[in-house]
Nucleic acid binder design. Structure first.
Lengths: 192, 192
DNA sequence: CCAGATGGCTAACTGTGCTAGCTTTTGGCT
DNA sequence: AGCCAAAAGCTAGCACAGTTAGCCATCTGG
Protein backbone atom coordinates (compact mmCIF):
# COMPACT_ATOMS: atom_id res chain seq x y z
CA UNK A 1 0.00 0.00 0.00
CA UNK A 2 1.53 3.32 -1.08
CA UNK A 3 1.77 6.17 1.42
CA UNK A 4 -0.35 9.25 1.29
CA UNK A 5 2.70 11.49 1.45
CA UNK A 6 1.36 13.91 3.99
CA UNK A 7 3.24 16.58 5.82
CA UNK A 8 2.21 19.05 8.51
CA UNK A 9 1.62 21.86 6.04
CA UNK A 10 -0.49 19.81 3.66
CA UNK A 11 -2.61 18.56 6.55
CA UNK A 12 -3.09 22.14 7.67
CA UNK A 13 -4.07 23.27 4.19
CA UNK A 14 -6.61 20.50 3.87
CA UNK A 15 -7.99 21.27 7.31
CA UNK A 16 -8.30 24.94 6.39
CA UNK A 17 -10.21 24.09 3.25
CA UNK A 18 -12.43 21.73 5.20
CA UNK A 19 -13.14 24.21 7.96
CA UNK A 20 -14.26 26.79 5.42
CA UNK A 21 -16.62 24.23 4.03
CA UNK A 22 -18.19 22.68 7.11
CA UNK A 23 -17.63 25.39 9.70
CA UNK A 24 -15.05 25.67 12.42
CA UNK A 25 -17.09 23.89 15.08
CA UNK A 26 -17.76 20.94 12.78
CA UNK A 27 -14.14 20.15 12.12
CA UNK A 28 -13.33 16.62 13.20
CA UNK A 29 -10.22 14.55 12.89
CA UNK A 30 -12.20 11.74 11.31
CA UNK A 31 -13.65 13.94 8.60
CA UNK A 32 -10.28 15.46 7.81
CA UNK A 33 -8.69 12.02 7.65
CA UNK A 34 -11.38 10.88 5.25
CA UNK A 35 -10.66 13.85 2.97
CA UNK A 36 -7.01 12.94 2.97
CA UNK A 37 -7.63 9.28 2.26
CA UNK A 38 -6.14 8.22 5.55
CA UNK A 39 -7.28 6.90 8.94
CA UNK A 40 -7.74 9.36 11.76
CA UNK A 41 -4.86 8.18 13.98
CA UNK A 42 -2.43 8.73 11.13
CA UNK A 43 -2.95 12.46 11.40
CA UNK A 44 -1.20 12.42 14.75
CA UNK A 45 2.06 11.74 12.95
CA UNK A 46 1.87 15.28 11.60
CA UNK A 47 0.06 17.35 14.22
CA UNK A 48 0.20 16.74 17.95
CA UNK A 49 -3.55 17.03 18.50
CA UNK A 50 -6.65 18.85 17.36
CA UNK A 51 -5.72 21.99 19.27
CA UNK A 52 -2.41 22.06 17.43
CA UNK A 53 -4.22 21.65 14.14
CA UNK A 54 -6.61 24.53 14.72
CA UNK A 55 -3.72 26.65 15.90
CA UNK A 56 -1.91 25.98 12.64
CA UNK A 57 -5.03 26.95 10.71
CA UNK A 58 -5.11 30.17 12.71
CA UNK A 59 -1.52 31.02 11.83
CA UNK A 60 -2.20 30.29 8.19
CA UNK A 61 -5.32 32.44 8.24
CA UNK A 62 -3.60 35.44 9.81
CA UNK A 63 -0.81 35.31 7.26
CA UNK A 64 -3.28 35.02 4.41
CA UNK A 65 -5.30 37.90 5.79
CA UNK A 66 -2.19 40.03 6.16
CA UNK A 67 -1.23 39.21 2.58
CA UNK A 68 -4.68 40.07 1.29
CA UNK A 69 -4.66 43.44 3.01
CA UNK A 70 -1.12 44.22 1.93
CA UNK A 71 -1.87 43.37 -1.68
CA UNK A 72 -5.06 45.40 -1.70
CA UNK A 73 -3.46 48.53 -0.29
CA UNK A 74 -0.36 48.36 -2.45
CA UNK A 75 0.36 51.83 -3.76
CA UNK A 76 -2.57 53.46 -2.02
CA UNK A 77 -2.67 55.92 0.84
CA UNK A 78 -5.13 57.66 3.13
CA UNK A 79 -8.79 57.07 2.42
CA UNK A 80 -8.10 54.91 -0.58
CA UNK A 81 -5.91 52.58 1.43
CA UNK A 82 -8.42 52.38 4.25
CA UNK A 83 -11.29 51.49 2.00
CA UNK A 84 -9.28 49.02 -0.02
CA UNK A 85 -7.87 47.33 3.06
CA UNK A 86 -11.24 47.09 4.73
CA UNK A 87 -12.81 45.62 1.62
CA UNK A 88 -9.99 43.12 1.29
CA UNK A 89 -10.49 41.94 4.84
CA UNK A 90 -14.22 41.62 4.43
CA UNK A 91 -13.77 39.71 1.23
CA UNK A 92 -11.23 37.37 2.75
CA UNK A 93 -13.42 36.55 5.74
CA UNK A 94 -16.51 35.96 3.63
CA UNK A 95 -14.50 33.62 1.47
CA UNK A 96 -12.80 31.87 4.37
CA UNK A 97 -15.12 32.02 7.38
CA UNK A 98 -13.78 28.83 8.94
CA UNK A 99 -10.17 29.94 8.78
CA UNK A 100 -11.11 33.29 10.28
CA UNK A 101 -13.04 31.59 13.07
CA UNK A 102 -9.97 29.48 13.78
CA UNK A 103 -7.94 32.66 13.94
CA UNK A 104 -10.29 34.14 16.49
CA UNK A 105 -10.40 31.01 18.60
CA UNK A 106 -6.62 30.82 18.82
CA UNK A 107 -4.57 32.36 21.61
CA UNK A 108 -0.87 33.12 21.52
CA UNK A 109 0.74 30.40 23.60
CA UNK A 110 4.43 30.90 24.28
CA UNK A 111 7.05 33.47 23.35
CA UNK A 112 7.93 31.49 20.21
CA UNK A 113 4.39 31.01 19.03
CA UNK A 114 4.30 31.77 15.29
CA UNK A 115 0.79 33.10 15.79
CA UNK A 116 2.15 36.25 17.39
CA UNK A 117 4.07 37.53 14.36
CA UNK A 118 1.19 36.53 12.11
CA UNK A 119 -1.24 38.65 14.11
CA UNK A 120 1.31 41.43 14.26
CA UNK A 121 1.50 41.50 10.49
CA UNK A 122 -2.24 42.17 10.29
CA UNK A 123 -2.07 44.86 12.94
CA UNK A 124 0.92 46.41 11.22
CA UNK A 125 -1.14 46.74 8.06
CA UNK A 126 -3.81 48.70 9.85
CA UNK A 127 -1.24 50.79 11.63
CA UNK A 128 0.44 51.69 8.36
CA UNK A 129 -2.91 52.61 6.92
CA UNK A 130 -3.74 54.88 9.83
CA UNK A 131 -0.35 56.52 9.53
CA UNK A 132 -1.61 58.33 6.47
CA UNK A 133 -4.05 60.27 8.62
CA UNK A 134 -1.27 61.81 10.69
CA UNK A 135 -2.99 61.38 14.01
CA UNK A 136 -1.52 62.41 17.30
CA UNK A 137 0.80 59.56 18.34
CA UNK A 138 -1.17 58.81 21.49
CA UNK A 139 -4.36 58.58 19.48
CA UNK A 140 -3.02 56.03 17.07
CA UNK A 141 -3.53 53.09 19.41
CA UNK A 142 -7.10 54.13 20.05
CA UNK A 143 -7.78 54.48 16.35
CA UNK A 144 -6.18 51.12 15.69
CA UNK A 145 -8.34 49.42 18.27
CA UNK A 146 -11.41 51.12 16.92
CA UNK A 147 -10.69 50.10 13.36
CA UNK A 148 -9.92 46.57 14.40
CA UNK A 149 -13.06 46.31 16.51
CA UNK A 150 -15.20 47.72 13.77
CA UNK A 151 -13.93 45.45 11.04
CA UNK A 152 -13.84 42.39 13.23
CA UNK A 153 -17.33 43.06 14.52
CA UNK A 154 -18.79 43.73 11.11
CA UNK A 155 -17.36 40.71 9.36
CA UNK A 156 -18.10 38.44 12.29
CA UNK A 157 -21.71 39.52 12.37
CA UNK A 158 -22.03 39.27 8.64
CA UNK A 159 -20.41 35.84 8.54
CA UNK A 160 -22.94 34.42 10.99
CA UNK A 161 -25.84 36.08 9.19
CA UNK A 162 -26.38 38.61 11.94
CA UNK A 163 -27.67 41.41 9.74
CA UNK A 164 -31.33 40.70 9.28
CA UNK A 165 -32.83 43.79 7.71
CA UNK A 166 -33.02 43.84 3.96
CA UNK A 167 -30.93 46.93 3.56
CA UNK A 168 -27.93 46.02 1.45
CA UNK A 169 -24.96 45.00 3.55
CA UNK A 170 -22.52 46.27 0.95
CA UNK A 171 -24.02 49.72 1.26
CA UNK A 172 -23.68 49.62 5.03
CA UNK A 173 -20.05 48.63 4.73
CA UNK A 174 -19.30 51.40 2.29
CA UNK A 175 -21.14 53.94 4.40
CA UNK A 176 -19.28 52.78 7.47
CA UNK A 177 -15.83 53.01 5.99
CA UNK A 178 -16.71 56.46 4.69
CA UNK A 179 -17.89 57.48 8.14
CA UNK A 180 -14.64 56.34 9.74
CA UNK A 181 -12.56 57.99 7.06
CA UNK A 182 -14.27 61.35 7.52
CA UNK A 183 -13.88 61.05 11.27
CA UNK A 184 -10.20 60.27 10.99
CA UNK A 185 -9.63 63.18 8.63
CA UNK A 186 -11.31 65.61 10.98
CA UNK A 187 -9.45 64.11 13.94
CA UNK A 188 -6.12 64.63 12.26
CA UNK A 189 -4.42 67.82 13.37
CA UNK A 190 -2.88 68.23 9.93
CA UNK A 191 -5.59 67.19 7.55
CA UNK A 192 -8.59 68.78 9.19
CA UNK B 1 -34.28 10.68 48.65
CA UNK B 2 -35.73 14.20 48.29
CA UNK B 3 -35.95 15.75 44.88
CA UNK B 4 -33.74 18.56 43.69
CA UNK B 5 -36.76 20.61 42.62
CA UNK B 6 -35.35 21.76 39.32
CA UNK B 7 -37.19 23.51 36.56
CA UNK B 8 -36.11 24.68 33.12
CA UNK B 9 -35.45 28.24 34.24
CA UNK B 10 -33.36 27.28 37.25
CA UNK B 11 -31.29 24.93 35.13
CA UNK B 12 -30.74 27.74 32.64
CA UNK B 13 -29.73 30.17 35.38
CA UNK B 14 -27.25 27.70 36.80
CA UNK B 15 -25.87 26.99 33.35
CA UNK B 16 -25.48 30.71 32.72
CA UNK B 17 -23.57 31.15 35.94
CA UNK B 18 -21.40 28.17 35.12
CA UNK B 19 -20.66 29.31 31.62
CA UNK B 20 -19.45 32.68 32.88
CA UNK B 21 -17.14 30.84 35.20
CA UNK B 22 -15.62 28.15 33.01
CA UNK B 23 -16.14 29.60 29.55
CA UNK B 24 -18.71 28.81 26.93
CA UNK B 25 -16.73 26.06 25.24
CA UNK B 26 -16.10 24.29 28.54
CA UNK B 27 -19.73 23.91 29.44
CA UNK B 28 -20.62 20.26 29.87
CA UNK B 29 -23.77 18.54 30.96
CA UNK B 30 -21.84 16.57 33.54
CA UNK B 31 -20.34 19.65 35.15
CA UNK B 32 -23.67 21.42 35.24
CA UNK B 33 -25.34 18.37 36.76
CA UNK B 34 -22.66 18.24 39.44
CA UNK B 35 -23.31 21.87 40.31
CA UNK B 36 -26.98 21.14 40.68
CA UNK B 37 -26.41 18.04 42.80
CA UNK B 38 -27.93 15.79 40.19
CA UNK B 39 -26.83 13.21 37.63
CA UNK B 40 -26.35 14.29 34.05
CA UNK B 41 -29.27 12.39 32.50
CA UNK B 42 -31.68 14.08 34.89
CA UNK B 43 -31.09 17.38 33.12
CA UNK B 44 -32.89 16.00 30.10
CA UNK B 45 -36.15 16.19 32.02
CA UNK B 46 -35.85 19.98 31.82
CA UNK B 47 -34.01 20.75 28.60
CA UNK B 48 -34.16 18.70 25.44
CA UNK B 49 -30.40 18.67 24.83
CA UNK B 50 -27.26 20.74 25.12
CA UNK B 51 -28.14 22.86 22.11
CA UNK B 52 -31.45 23.73 23.75
CA UNK B 53 -29.64 24.64 26.94
CA UNK B 54 -27.20 27.00 25.25
CA UNK B 55 -30.05 28.52 23.30
CA UNK B 56 -31.86 29.26 26.55
CA UNK B 57 -28.71 30.86 27.92
CA UNK B 58 -28.57 33.00 24.81
CA UNK B 59 -32.14 34.21 25.25
CA UNK B 60 -31.46 35.01 28.88
CA UNK B 61 -28.31 36.88 27.97
CA UNK B 62 -29.96 39.01 25.31
CA UNK B 63 -32.73 40.01 27.69
CA UNK B 64 -30.26 40.84 30.43
CA UNK B 65 -28.20 42.87 28.01
CA UNK B 66 -31.25 44.73 26.79
CA UNK B 67 -32.21 45.46 30.40
CA UNK B 68 -28.74 46.70 31.24
CA UNK B 69 -28.68 49.07 28.30
CA UNK B 70 -32.21 50.31 28.95
CA UNK B 71 -31.46 50.99 32.60
CA UNK B 72 -28.23 52.78 31.81
CA UNK B 73 -29.75 55.09 29.24
CA UNK B 74 -32.86 55.88 31.24
CA UNK B 75 -33.50 59.59 31.03
CA UNK B 76 -30.53 60.31 28.80
CA UNK B 77 -30.39 61.41 25.18
CA UNK B 78 -27.91 62.01 22.40
CA UNK B 79 -24.25 61.68 23.28
CA UNK B 80 -24.97 60.93 26.91
CA UNK B 81 -27.22 58.04 26.02
CA UNK B 82 -24.74 56.66 23.52
CA UNK B 83 -21.87 56.71 25.97
CA UNK B 84 -23.92 55.30 28.82
CA UNK B 85 -25.39 52.54 26.68
CA UNK B 86 -22.04 51.57 25.27
CA UNK B 87 -20.50 51.45 28.70
CA UNK B 88 -23.35 49.36 30.02
CA UNK B 89 -22.91 46.84 27.27
CA UNK B 90 -19.17 46.61 27.77
CA UNK B 91 -19.65 46.19 31.48
CA UNK B 92 -22.25 43.48 31.03
CA UNK B 93 -20.10 41.48 28.64
CA UNK B 94 -17.01 41.72 30.82
CA UNK B 95 -19.05 40.50 33.74
CA UNK B 96 -20.81 37.76 31.77
CA UNK B 97 -18.51 36.64 28.98
CA UNK B 98 -19.91 33.12 28.84
CA UNK B 99 -23.50 34.28 28.50
CA UNK B 100 -22.50 36.70 25.79
CA UNK B 101 -20.60 33.98 23.95
CA UNK B 102 -23.72 31.83 24.12
CA UNK B 103 -25.69 34.72 22.70
CA UNK B 104 -23.33 34.99 19.76
CA UNK B 105 -23.28 31.27 19.10
CA UNK B 106 -27.06 31.11 18.96
CA UNK B 107 -29.10 31.41 15.77
CA UNK B 108 -32.76 32.22 15.51
CA UNK B 109 -34.46 28.92 14.71
CA UNK B 110 -38.13 29.18 13.88
CA UNK B 111 -40.69 31.96 13.68
CA UNK B 112 -41.61 31.44 17.34
CA UNK B 113 -38.08 31.40 18.64
CA UNK B 114 -37.95 33.60 21.76
CA UNK B 115 -34.42 34.55 20.77
CA UNK B 116 -35.72 36.82 18.02
CA UNK B 117 -37.59 39.25 20.27
CA UNK B 118 -34.72 39.20 22.74
CA UNK B 119 -32.26 40.27 20.07
CA UNK B 120 -34.76 42.81 18.79
CA UNK B 121 -34.91 44.40 22.22
CA UNK B 122 -31.18 45.01 22.12
CA UNK B 123 -31.30 46.40 18.62
CA UNK B 124 -34.24 48.58 19.55
CA UNK B 125 -32.15 50.11 22.30
CA UNK B 126 -29.44 51.12 19.88
CA UNK B 127 -31.98 52.37 17.39
CA UNK B 128 -33.62 54.55 20.02
CA UNK B 129 -30.26 55.90 20.97
CA UNK B 130 -29.40 56.77 17.40
CA UNK B 131 -32.73 58.47 16.97
CA UNK B 132 -31.41 61.34 19.05
CA UNK B 133 -28.95 62.17 16.30
CA UNK B 134 -31.72 62.79 13.77
CA UNK B 135 -30.00 61.02 10.93
CA UNK B 136 -31.48 60.66 7.48
CA UNK B 137 -33.85 57.69 7.68
CA UNK B 138 -31.91 55.70 5.12
CA UNK B 139 -28.72 56.22 7.08
CA UNK B 140 -30.10 54.88 10.32
CA UNK B 141 -29.68 51.25 9.38
CA UNK B 142 -26.10 51.87 8.38
CA UNK B 143 -25.39 53.67 11.62
CA UNK B 144 -27.06 50.90 13.59
CA UNK B 145 -24.95 48.25 11.92
CA UNK B 146 -21.84 50.30 12.49
CA UNK B 147 -22.57 50.82 16.14
CA UNK B 148 -23.42 47.20 16.64
CA UNK B 149 -20.30 46.04 14.81
CA UNK B 150 -18.11 48.41 16.75
CA UNK B 151 -19.41 47.45 20.17
CA UNK B 152 -19.58 43.76 19.42
CA UNK B 153 -16.08 43.79 17.99
CA UNK B 154 -14.59 45.75 20.83
CA UNK B 155 -16.07 43.75 23.67
CA UNK B 156 -15.41 40.45 21.90
CA UNK B 157 -11.78 41.31 21.40
CA UNK B 158 -11.43 42.60 24.93
CA UNK B 159 -13.12 39.54 26.41
CA UNK B 160 -10.65 37.20 24.75
CA UNK B 161 -7.69 39.36 25.72
CA UNK B 162 -7.12 40.55 22.20
CA UNK B 163 -5.75 43.98 23.07
CA UNK B 164 -2.09 43.45 23.79
CA UNK B 165 -0.53 46.87 23.99
CA UNK B 166 -0.29 48.43 27.39
CA UNK B 167 -2.32 51.47 26.47
CA UNK B 168 -5.34 51.55 28.77
CA UNK B 169 -8.34 49.83 27.25
CA UNK B 170 -10.75 52.11 29.11
CA UNK B 171 -9.16 55.10 27.43
CA UNK B 172 -9.54 53.49 24.03
CA UNK B 173 -13.19 52.78 24.68
CA UNK B 174 -13.87 56.32 25.77
CA UNK B 175 -11.98 57.75 22.81
CA UNK B 176 -13.88 55.47 20.47
CA UNK B 177 -17.33 56.37 21.73
CA UNK B 178 -16.36 60.02 21.51
CA UNK B 179 -15.18 59.53 17.95
CA UNK B 180 -18.44 57.92 16.93
CA UNK B 181 -20.49 60.55 18.70
CA UNK B 182 -18.70 63.39 16.91
CA UNK B 183 -19.11 61.60 13.63
CA UNK B 184 -22.82 61.10 14.16
CA UNK B 185 -23.30 64.70 15.14
CA UNK B 186 -21.58 65.93 12.02
CA UNK B 187 -23.47 63.41 9.91
CA UNK B 188 -26.78 64.64 11.21
CA UNK B 189 -28.43 67.12 8.89
CA UNK B 190 -29.94 68.94 11.87
CA UNK B 191 -27.23 68.90 14.46
CA UNK B 192 -24.20 69.58 12.34
C1' DC C 1 -55.25 7.55 50.36
C1' DC C 2 -54.70 6.14 45.96
C1' DA C 3 -53.18 7.00 41.03
C1' DG C 4 -51.13 9.22 37.66
C1' DA C 5 -47.67 12.37 36.45
C1' DT C 6 -43.20 13.68 37.22
C1' DG C 7 -38.27 13.88 38.46
C1' DG C 8 -34.72 11.47 39.69
C1' DC C 9 -31.60 7.20 38.97
C1' DT C 10 -28.56 3.39 36.57
C1' DA C 11 -27.15 1.15 32.50
C1' DA C 12 -25.79 1.43 28.20
C1' DC C 13 -24.94 3.22 23.28
C1' DT C 14 -22.63 6.51 20.09
C1' DG C 15 -19.29 9.48 18.37
C1' DT C 16 -14.94 11.86 18.90
C1' DG C 17 -10.24 12.58 20.46
C1' DC C 18 -6.37 10.22 21.32
C1' DT C 19 -2.62 6.45 22.65
C1' DA C 20 -0.21 2.02 22.15
C1' DG C 21 1.98 -0.86 19.58
C1' DC C 22 2.60 -3.24 15.16
C1' DT C 23 3.84 -3.28 10.11
C1' DT C 24 5.46 -1.44 6.00
C1' DT C 25 7.48 1.82 3.17
C1' DT C 26 11.18 4.92 2.18
C1' DG C 27 15.49 6.96 1.57
C1' DG C 28 20.37 7.25 2.73
C1' DC C 29 24.76 4.81 3.40
C1' DT C 30 28.00 1.48 2.68
C1' DA D 1 22.41 -3.78 -4.59
C1' DG D 2 21.12 -4.32 -0.19
C1' DC D 3 20.46 -3.07 4.59
C1' DC D 4 18.68 -0.38 8.41
C1' DA D 5 16.76 3.20 10.88
C1' DA D 6 13.23 6.63 10.71
C1' DA D 7 8.92 7.73 9.47
C1' DA D 8 4.10 6.94 8.03
C1' DG D 9 0.55 4.31 7.91
C1' DC D 10 -2.64 0.79 10.22
C1' DT D 11 -5.81 -1.74 13.90
C1' DA D 12 -7.31 -2.08 18.51
C1' DG D 13 -8.85 0.03 22.16
C1' DC D 14 -9.43 3.59 26.04
C1' DA D 15 -11.72 7.81 27.98
C1' DC D 16 -15.07 11.00 28.01
C1' DA D 17 -19.17 13.67 26.50
C1' DG D 18 -23.85 13.63 24.95
C1' DT D 19 -27.83 11.11 24.86
C1' DT D 20 -31.61 7.36 25.28
C1' DA D 21 -34.16 3.63 27.61
C1' DG D 22 -36.29 2.09 31.12
C1' DC D 23 -36.89 1.68 36.18
C1' DC D 24 -38.28 3.44 40.71
C1' DA D 25 -39.37 6.91 44.05
C1' DT D 26 -41.81 10.99 45.09
C1' DC D 27 -44.99 14.41 44.83
C1' DT D 28 -49.96 16.06 43.93
C1' DG D 29 -54.98 16.18 42.67
C1' DG D 30 -59.17 13.87 43.26
Amino acid sequence: MPRAGLVASSVTEAAAALVDEVGFENLSMGLLAERLGVRAPSLYKHVTDKADLTHRIAVLAMHELADAVRDATQGLAGSDALVAGARAMRSYVLQHPGRYAAGNAARVQGPDDPLAPAVDRVLASWTAMLHGYRLHPHEEVHALRMLRSLLHGFVSLEAIGGFQMDTDVDDSFTWMTGFIDRGLVSTSPRLA
